[in-house]
Design a protein around this nucleic acid. Structure first.
Length: 336
DNA sequence: ATCTACACCTGACCGC
DNA sequence: TGCGGTCAGGTGTAGA
């Protein structure tokens, strides 16, 4: 359930703590976290060892580390990694390390002396002259993982080279091949609203299924889908093509607002599973209006003097939460 | 081509 | 106490 805001919290943490770090020993405790790695653990270990981390990028729920092999001869300052200036001069390796948190993944940056986590699967030793740290990939349910993927160019709709990720430091027009099919997310300035609208009009799938499709819009998972639909007053089952242009814009706007707010509060957390790189939980759960609020009053209805209680309904083999008053199916859209 | 079904996982929780 | 069933659900792929 880490969605865009939670993954961005992790990305920022990595950008703050591991840029310029040189990767030393790589320890794979559980090969199942490398299911997508061609050649298995050996290939990952062989490739990563000795490389320097030069950038951390994200698109939707995918994170990736950009690497350089030429960092070895750099002079590393006392107690830290190399400078930004040095980093920008380094030539990129042709593969990035892609990380997906799946349902329960965490990326922690910790002192090697601290005890390892129960579900730690992979550990990268980060070497500095004084500072030694570990990048730990922890994942209880093993839906997440790490793997190398070759960088390929990214293009805009008009065919121009375009930064693959709005949030990377270097803003390179390169994306890991394995992430190239993922659409830009609603917080990406290059998000293509017209393409989003075209796809909406072409789809008879329920609107919630539509916005969960990472090929159409990325970063949205079950929690923020329900929150955005609540804000836009849309029923999850409404066929996408029957959502008006104004409602579609409202939905996109709602997803931006809810994710921006969640990011400002450090992400959503239901338990200790979703945390930043220092192991701390976010506070956004307190701000959720629909998700997880079965039986509680809809705050919008309450403010208007009505009483209606949020309901939980099965949809797409998972739970959906909505207000039965302000998120109804119009007559035309019934039957899904 | 489009869509559905399932595999991948662990742990918390619930009813018996 | 134990034990089976259910739920949490993102992503990729096999099959219809």
């Amino acid at each position: 359930m880490p969605e865009l805001p939670e993954v961005e919290v992790v990305r920022r943490g990595l950008a703050d703590h591991v840029l310029g770090a040189r990767i030393g020993q790589v320890l794979v405790r559980d090969g199942r976290s490398l299911r997508r790695q061609l050649g298995g653990p050996t290939a990952l270990v062989d490739y990563l060892t000795g490389l320097t981390i030069v950038d951390v990028a994200r698109r939707g729920k995918f994170l990736w580390l950009l690497l350089s092999g030429s960092g070895e001869e750099l002079r590393r300052p006392e107690g830290g990694w190399v400078s930004d200036q040095q980093l920008e001069a380094l030539p990129l390796e042709d593969q990035a390390l892609v990380i997906h948190l799946g349902m329960s993944g965490q990326v922690l940056v910790k002192d090697p002396a601290l005890p390892q986590e129960k579900h730690q699967r992979v550990c990268l030793e980060l070497e500095g002259p004084a500072g030694q740290k570990q990048l730990r990939f922890v994942d209880q349910r093993l839906f997440g993982g790490l793997f190398l993927s070759p960088l390929v160019p990214t293009f805009s709709a008009e065919g121009a080279l375009q930064a693959a990720s709005a949030v990377s430091r270097l803003g390179l027009p390169l994306i890991p091949e394995a992430v190239a099919h993922i659409a830009r997310d609603p917080l990406d300035p290059f998000f293509d609203e017209r393409a989003f609208r075209r796809a909406m009009l072409a789809s008879s799938r329920p609107i919630k299924e539509f916005i969960l499709n990472q090929r159409v819009i990325s970063g949205v998972g079950n929690i923020y889908a329900d929150e955005a639909l609540w804000r836009a007053r849309l029923h999850y089952g409404r066929p996408a093509k029957l959502v008006s242009a104004a409602q579609g814009r409202a939905l996109l706007q709602a997803s931006r607002q809810v994710m921006t707010q969640a990011l400002a509060e450090g992400g959503t957390s239901f338990d200790a599973l979703y945390v930043n790189v220092e192991g701390e939980s976010g506070y956004f759960e307190r701000s959720l209006q629909a998700y997880g609020r079965e039986g509680e009053p809809c705050s919008r209805c309450q403010a208007a003097g009505r009483s209606s209680l949020v309901v939980r309904e099965p949809f797409m083999n998972r739970s959906s939460y909505r207000c039965p008053f302000c998120q109804r199916l119009p007559r035309r859209g019934r039957g899904s």
